[in-house]
Design a protein around this nucleic acid. Structure first.
Lengths: 235, 235
DNA sequence: TCAACCCAGTTTGTATACAATTTTCACTTG
DNA sequence: CAAGTGAAAATTGTATACAAACTGGGTTGA
């Protein structure tokens, strides 16, 4: 696996996670190869890797599309996500060093400014960091990698949540409590708080469900291509 | 992804999981291609897929080897495995239908014969089925898939445990309690029992650790090839 | 009118050829 | 005789060529 594949992986993952390639988008190999200036071989490798993480779906002989999980699948993934986040927090509360706790506190305080500024994009970034500090604080690389991967996979959907400003305020307040529990070494509380934080049982979960993009409802037609269409020359 | 790749995946995964390709074994593309009568292209795809599940490790420009997690990594994976198994059990206790509960009961009773016959291989198979019924009983396909995948990845190491006959008797007894908890709809108990069942805190965990194959200790030399060596003709 | 079918175009799956990098091993050298 | 050196061999990464399967549209027949 060489540099070409890595470049493709990075680029495609970014575009999928940020939603620039919405769920259901067709990913044809020739088009991507041309767009990135490589041959089909590394494109296929990259698509395989992305399929392994679940970000794209590979239908045999029928090409790859950006994964478009339906509501049931999304709920299933969130259910697991909640458990993994909770486990990370539980372990982090028991295992984080004082230095790591300081880092977490710092990440939390940094996000405060963004709440006051009502800057949802900046808060989103700070939120990612806050959670990543907890992941690494669990001192279990396999767990933190898995959790991070699932978070990434759900990012396109989670991102919709934090757009609402009142949800941001709630999120910040929940972080405060989570931080407290971890610093206090209270794994059980950290676990429960994080589970609720993720599943967003704290009120806006139904909002989230109803805010789902249409594509999550298995819209089959209307699929757009990931490669820029070149207008064919006139006959 | 065509039939060639699928054939390779099945064959290689089987050989890795059963230990016929021990951790650290080198997997060179040309050799595998020749052995399976295909070109390098589908071999590379298969290796990529296996790398995604963690069964093989892909070192850039340096080839693929059967994953050889060290002790720390194994403990990390078992820690997550315990949590996932527990979660499956917790959900299964709440969600399994009467018919599914019967299936589980049947799987358990089937394994009883193998305990009495002291047939560790047969019990191993029955044990797999018992757990798979619980996985599917959680009614969360994403969770059951993930758990199954991790179980598969750990199979080569878990298999060592059940070789000891007294461990088999213990395992069967633990299954009995787990079955009870699930039928009673007691998710908490099922969770805790399954966590202990997996981490084998019930006594033989240190035995397991000390029974680890040398390869898990990052033995670098002495790596054998996965392709049969053809003795070169005499000069 | 509509359904089934057939054929051309497009796309994926596989094989092979070439390029780039690592590994091996004989040979030099201190 | 040990260690370093350098070129050949072997192996991986990428590009291209070919084969097989799917897609879509138009024709044909009832």
């Amino acid at each position: 696996m060489g540099k070409q594949v890595l470049k493709l992986l990075e680029a495609l993952e970014q575009e999928v996670v940020t939603g620039r390639l919405p769920p259901g988008t067709r990913l044809d190999e020739a088009g991507l190869a041309q767009r990135f200036g490589v041959s089909r071989t590394p494109v296929r490798e990259a698509l395989n890797r992305l399929a392994a993480t679940g970000l794209v779906e590979l239908r045999p002989r029928r090409g790859a599309v950006v994964a478009a999980p339906d509501l049931k699948q999304l709920l299933e993934m969130f259910e697991v996500m909640a458990e993994l986040e909770g486990l990370c927090g539980r372990l982090a509360a028991r295992r984080m060093s004082a230095a790591e706790q300081n880092t977490l506190q710092g990440a939390h305080e940094a996000s405060h400014a963004h709440v006051k500024a009502a800057d949802s994009e900046a808060y989103y970034q700070a939120n990612v960091i806050f959670h990543e500090v907890i992941y690494s604080g669990c001192h279990n690389r396999y767990l933190s990698d898995q959790t991070q991967a699932l978070r990434n996979r759900l990012a396109a959907y989670r991102r919709l949540q934090l757009r609402k400003l009142d949800r941001i305020a709630d999120s910040f307040h929940e972080h405060e409590q989570i931080l407290e529990a971890i610093v206090a070494g209270d794994g059980n509380t950290a676990d429960h708080l994080l589970q609720n934080h993720v599943t967003v049982q704290s009120g806006s979960f139904t909002d989230f469900v109803s805010s789902l993009p249409v594509s999550a409802a298995r819209r089959d037609p209307g699929i757009t291509s990931a490669t820029k269409k070149t207008t064919p020359g006139a006959p």
